[in-house]
Structure formats: structure tokens, C-alpha cells
Amino acid sequence: MKHAMTYVAGLVPAFLLAAGLAGAAEMTAGEKQLYDAAKKEGSVTWYVSQTTTEFADGMCGLFKKKYAGVECNVVRASGQVIFQRLVQELQAKAVQGDLMSTNDDGQMLQLKEQGALAQFAPENLKDMVPELRALADKENYWITSGVSPLVIAYNTKLVTEAEAPKNWTDLADPKWKGQVAIGHPSFSGSVGLWTILMNDLYGWDFFTKIEKNKPQIGRSVADGHNLVASGERKVALAPLPLILSDSILKKVPIGVIYPTDGALLPPSATAIMKDAPHPNAARLFENFLLGPEIAEYFAKDYRYPLRAGVPLAEGMRPLDSYKTKSIATVDGIKKLPEVQEKFRDTFGI
């Protein structure tokens, strides 16, 4: 009996080991190869404006758990700030970020034209939602790493659903005077695209009207969300996942309006830098972004999973169930400087 116990006790670690091996065995040959090379590089540095720091830290945590021995450093800032940093590094010929994720794919196009990006097609591309995959670069200089529709957020304590704005132009209604919050197109990538969209739809007049409502202008697109959540402002331009996760998980009094004239669908893009100090770790990470762990993580946080077949979180509407609009990458680059300049002129900042 005693012997048997010892035997069983000895079996447990052996079993665990086997399970671990099985986990490793799930890796494809290409993945294994990248992992080994990445372990030699030791770490990956990820510049991200696509998500909040907390969320990005979570993604990094999952990566480290799956690929032990590869450190993951998150550097999070708003889209333009991250981009500025990268441009500084390119000019300094001292690239430190391995890969970058942004909500403004126009930046990717610019970097691609500068020859700053590396071409890479991760294995997991094949499992992606085809519509999302189609938003990425055809030559695989960047992948689509998420979609966070920009919608209208309102504070459910201060505003009833009936009172809430129904579409973007409602934000210019004088009844929201002193109660609107928006981001700044010179700081936030997705706000830049939104500014282009509004200008395309309604002309600059939209912004002169908004200006009369004295909106609070934040830097990041998340700013508006936080202002509404805290009740500092009643309505704001905000990314959908933030609103859903805060309202459902944290019971924050914030609600979503899917604007009838179309939520902005800025594809988030992730690319590997050509001079990345840890190229293999970067590839491993990019592939990981499209893997099942992240898809689940996204779904749990009320984001649209990138992999086909992963169910949406409860309370989320499928992307095709409401009206969305997006800005073509080329248009984005072409129009951004102009609207940034106009925005500064109109809002004086």
C-alpha cells in the first residue's frame, strides 16, 4: 500500500510534465522555431496605442505565460505619441520598439513607405475572420489586430436613453452645451479618423457647431469615456469595448449609442519594425495576437475576437448588425494633416 502511494505520488509530477509537454507539443513547427529563436532574444518590446495599458499588460501576461522565457514590455501611449516616439527612433537610427499596434492604420502606410516595416505573414492569419483580415495590408506589412468601433457613450445616471443622442450630429445639439467630450486628432489616431469621417459626412460645419457646445478635449480617445463614466461629461465619443466592459463588468453608469449615421470602424493594425531589436520575438508575438488565447481574452473584454468561430460576449452586437463606416487607409493619410490643422484652428488648441 505504502509502495502504491509512493508510486501515485511519483506519478503526479510525471503527469503534469506530460501535460506540459503536450502543451508544447501543440506548437506548430514554425511556432516552435520562432519560440526558440525568441528565447535567445529574451524579450519583446511592444508599442501600443490600440488598447489601454491595463488591457495591454494583460495581453503581455498571457504571452509570457505561454512562452516562458520571453519577456514582454508594454509601452503604451496615445496613437500620435507612440508614432512620434517611433519616428524619433527611426531618425535616431535607434529603433527600440519591436512591434507597434495602433488604431490609425495610416501610420502603418507611412511607415511602410519609409521602408521601416518588416513583411510577415503569421501562421494564424488563416484562422482570422475574413472581413477583418481583408482590412490589413495586402503585402502583409501589417495585420489587423483588432476593431474597436467608435460610438457615443452617455452617462446613464445623468441622461436617459430617450434623451441620449441618436447620431453624431446630435452631439452638436445646444442641449449638450458643456457636456460633450471628444479626443484630439493630433494626439489620438482613431479620433483623427473620426474627424475625417465627420468632415466627409457633414463638412467642417459639424465641428464649428460642436465647438459652440464647448466640448472638453482630451488627448486619448479613452479620455472621453472616463469623463462620461465619472459624470464629468454627459456624452462623449468613445470606443465600444471600454463602454461595454465598464458598464457590464464594473457596473459603471455608462451606456452605448450606436449612431444611426454609422459607428466609425477603425481597424487596429500591428506591424513589426524592420530594425526590430528582437525580430523573432516580435514575429512570435504577432502570431500570438491572432491566436486563440487573445481571441478569448478579447471576447471576455467585449472586443470583437479576430478568430473565426469565437463567440461574442453577452451584450455585444455582431458587427454586421449596426451601421459602420471606415476610412480607407490612403484617404486617412491624405486627409489627416488638413483636419488636424483645421481642428486646431477651430478649437484653438
Binding site: F83, Q84, V87, Q91, Q107, Q110, H184, G218, G348, I349
Partner: peptide, 26 residues
């Protein structure tokens, strides 16, 4: 950075950061 952007009162240091954003104009 905290106040003058929401206050919409542009000052030199904020303007400087604009020159430091894309296109970088040191």
C-alpha cells in the same frame, strides 16, 4: 499638458510637442 488642452489655451510647450509629432520637425 493636463489643463491647457482641455482649457483650449495653447501655450509654447504644447506647440513644441506638435513639432515633435509626425512629421518630426526638430
Amino acid at each position: 499638458a493636463l489643463i491647457s488642452i482641455p482649457a483650449r489655451y495653447p501655450v509654447v510647450v504644447i506647440q513644441l510637442t506638435e513639432f515633435f509629432s509626425f512629421p518630426l520637425r526638430i
